[in-house]
């Protein structure tokens, strides 16, 4: 079974997946399009999410073994997926995968730097599109620039209306496609900021000694 959902808050996602497991839906795979579940008998378990990338398969294996040894089954995630999903297998054991505030918060810091690097990776593309003239940022102030027909604005009457209406759908598509990349970059920056805020909230908001 597939379900779609987007959440920036890992704790909400953990709660939702734990609830799903209680209803008999166990996460089997997570892709950019959503979550895939196995149908299983309802389980009273806990799902936890870590956020990590791995450079070498051996590191990934070692990481999963550490969790396995301490009562957590790795159910979804790959070396490069970032989000790593764990299901509690040990009835008696810990219900948390982090035992101090600093490491709990650090998970959001890693998430935040991913979003930021995504934004930074797209910036050079955006800049080169603007410099090469493929995208004209002025067009968002002067929509006239979205029309390419030579001499369009000097035409009058019926011939103007014909040419204008003919090109309008193309101009709109041009505008929308030019907007895609800047919107994407802004979204990435917003996600980075949100994760960074969660990092700070956890780091400073809860007890952690002096």
């Amino acid at each position: 079974m597939r379900k779609c959902r987007f959440s920036l808050d890992l704790e909400h996602e953990e709660k939702w997946l734990t609830e799903m497991a209680k209803q008999g839906l166990s996460l089997s795979r997570k892709t950019v399009f959503g979550y895939e579940f196995w149908q299983i008998p309802p389980q009273d378990t806990v799902i936890r999410i870590d956020y990590r990338h791995f450079n070498r398969p051996a590191d990934f294996e070692d990481y999963r073994m550490l969790f396995k040894d301490s009562g957590w089954e790795h159910i979804a995630g790959t070396e490069s997926s970032g989000t790593q999903y764990f299901k509690k297998t040990d009835k008696e054991g810990e219900t948390q995968i982090f035992s101090d505030t600093a490491s709990k918060a650090a998970r959001y810091r890693r998430l935040s730097s991913l979003w930021l690097s995504l934004a930074l990776a797209h910036l050079p593309i955006l800049i080169s599109l603007i410099y090469s003239g493929t995208v004209d940022p002025l067009a968002f102030l002067k929509p006239r620039l979205l029309y390419y027909t030579p001499g369009l604005w000097d035409m009058t009457g019926g011939s103007f209306l014909d040419a204008f209406l003919f090109e309008t759908p193309f101009a709109i598509m041009r505008g929308v496609s030019w907007l895609l990349l800047p919107v994407l970059v802004c979204l990435c920056i917003a996600c980075a900021a949100r994760s960074e805020m969660q990092y700070r909230k956890i780091k400073h908001g809860r007890k952690g000694g002096f």
Binding site: Y63, S70, E94, I97, S99, R107
Partner: peptide, 8 residues
């Protein structure tokens, strides 16, 4: 008592 994620 350390949890797995913290130890890693």
């Amino acid at each position: 008592r350390m949890a797995a994620g913290t130890l890693y």
